[in-house]
Design a protein around this nucleic acid. Structure first.
Length: 479
RNA sequence: CGCGGGGUGGAGCAAUUGGCAGCUCGCAAGGCUCAUAACCUUGAGGUUGGCGGUUCGAAUCCGCCCCCCGCAACCA
């Protein structure tokens, strides 16, 4: 027997507190939650981390706009995120905020080590600086030499910054990715990263002179830490990088960083290079999921078509939203969602499918057997493929397998005609319902990482001494 | 030649390593009555964007072309 439980450390990006949670951030966090639940089911020592990124000029500006001081502002937004995850039945083990002491101390230690590694140097950052954007613009971003956002000519600015020798890490990174020591999913993303590395890596500036509300460099108070690096380090600071080395050694390296495809370069190139520089192990895997369009249109604030997962959860139930997002789009690919599609899935799969099957089976148990099932049975259907699919993050595939079992059960019932059989051979009806009950129980177990509340309802009903059809349907049909 | 993702029955999607083209919704006909007017069966509907190539065999591999979308510009 293994006395030491396997650990499983899984993370989401930490979210910028400029905006409330939306369907995209919800999706990432949901996927991580499902994996966390899956591994908890196996009895593993799971550490599921999410949180908020609270440094940066934009945060300072937004706070000012909202008429709040920065601390009030970030507190409010961090709470919004935390509450949203609650409403989606997402249960992280830890929630880190970059303004927390444990993070700030860890980042200071991290940068000190980085400097000691000899991989930092002072250099000049030159480029077109748009005062409106408060950021440097690449030549390619300018239209007729003018910033297209603010329609003004940027200034050529030379700024003294600290740089990280990212260029030195190209070949080692390439090797670790190619040998799968550092895994990137899906495969298309791995290839994308490799081809990016093959084009050569440039050193990056890791400090800024202009940023508001950012951490100062420990050895150069004139400069602030580039917020992206501050944010990346949350994965280490949360598990005690600075304060509790024992805990850190237990959980690091992360088993999975779940991210959106937009931040691949930060997680698959810059982040591992930084870790190599300070002598820490690389995460085992990064999984980049795709993006949603809404009714074929890109989701954006200006179009006003951003979907709010919390509002949807209030209306349809958090399990329904969780099911929909993971079933509708194969994880890793882009996909299209809409409230119409959610309703369609809800009625077809949840109300008519799982809900109705559960209803007819429990009803027959109550009616034909007086709720007295007796001995438990082995499920007549092998659902091990479901777990395999979930473990590979093929959520939609696993869910399809479950719904195949539901269709199978409906067919079996129609073929067996228990409503006739009960008059002539009640024993056979009992056998049939025993195995249907076992199948439903197994479905609940397999489904529980994705739909924890529904799974509990099913299990609870089937564990009763006298099984009765519950008064409330699992999923009342929506008109 | 900026990078990336796609084009599959009316709609939306799926097809590990090339091997009888599947699913959901919708539509048509029938069946059943235990169930949330649910469920089951059958049917109609496709030259898998186009052309060419490799192969015994291509939605899948190769070449060229056409079209759509995303990123590159707040946004997962």
């Amino acid at each position: 027997m293994n006395l030491e439980r396997n650990k499983f450390y899984i993370t989401t990006p930490i979210y910028y507190v400029n905006d409330k949670p939306h369907i995209g951030t919800g999706y990432t966090t949901l996927a991580a939650d499902v994996l966390a639940r899956l591994h908890r089911q196996l009895g593993e020592d799971v550490y599921f981390l999410t949180g908020t990124a609270e440094h940066g000029s934009k945060v300072a500006e937004s706070a000012e706009k909202a008429g709040l001081n920065i601390q009030e502002f970030v507190d409010e937004y961090a709470a919004k995120f935390s509450l949203a995850w609650d409403e989606l039945t997402i249960a992280p083990d830890d929630f880190i905020r970059t303004t927390e002491e444990r993070h700030i101390r860890a980042v200071n230690l991290f940068f000190t080590k980085l400097k000691d590694s000899g991989k930092l140097y002072e250099g000049d950052y030159e480029g077109w600086y748009c005062v409106g954007c408060e950021s440097f613009k690449k030549e390619s971003e300018l239209v007729n030499g003018v910033c297209p956002l603010h329609n003004r000519k940027p200034e050529w600015i030379k700024e003294r910054n600290w740089f990280f020798k990212l260029s030195e890490f190209a070949s080692i990174l390439k090797e670790k990715i190619e040998t799968d020591e550092f895994r990137i999913f899906p495969l298309a993303r791995k290839n994308e990263v490799l081809s990016f590395i093959n084009q050569g890596l440039e050193d990056i500036a890791v400090s800024r002179r202009t940023a508001k509300f950012a951490m100062p460099l420990p050895w150069d108070k004139e400069q602030t830490i580039y917020v992206w690096l501050d944010e990346l380090f949350n994965y280490c600071s949360a598990i005690g990088y600075e304060s509790d080395r024992k805990k850190f050694d237990k959980y690091w390296p992360a088993d999975f960083h779940i991210i959106g495809k937009d931040i691949i370069k930060f997680h698959c190139i810059i982040w591992p290079a930084l870790l190599l520089a300070i002598g820490e192990q690389l995460p085992r895997a990064v999984y980049a999921h795709g993006f949603f369009t809404v009714n074929g249109q890109k989701m954006s604030k200006s179009l006003g078509n951003v979907m709010d997962p919390v509002a949807l959860a209030h209306q349809y139930g958090s399990d329904a939203v969780r099911y929909f997002l993971l079933r509708e789009v194969p994880f890793g690919q882009d996909g299209d969602v809409s409230e119409e599609k959610l309703k369609e899935r809800y009625n077809a799969d949840l109300a008519n499918g799982l809900g109705n099957l559960f209803s007819r089976v429990t009803n027959m148990m109550e009616k034909y057997l007086d709720g007295d099932l007796g001995d438990a049975r082995v499920s007549p259907k092998d659902l091990s493929e479901v777990s395999e699919a979930f473990h590979s993050l093929n959520f939609s595939e696993g869910l399809v397998k479950i719904w195949e079992a539901i269709a199978w059960a409906n067919q079996l019932i129609d073929k067996s005609k228990p409503w006739e059989l009960v008059k002539t051979e009640p024993k056979k009806v009992k056998e049939l319902l025993l195995s249907l009950g076992a199948l439903l129980y197994d479905i609940a177990l397999k489904l529980s990482p994705v739909m924890p509340e529904t799974a509990n309802k099913i299990k609870t009903a089937l564990e009763q001494e006298k099984i009765m059809k519950p008064a409330q349907p699992l999923f009342p049909k929506i008109e």
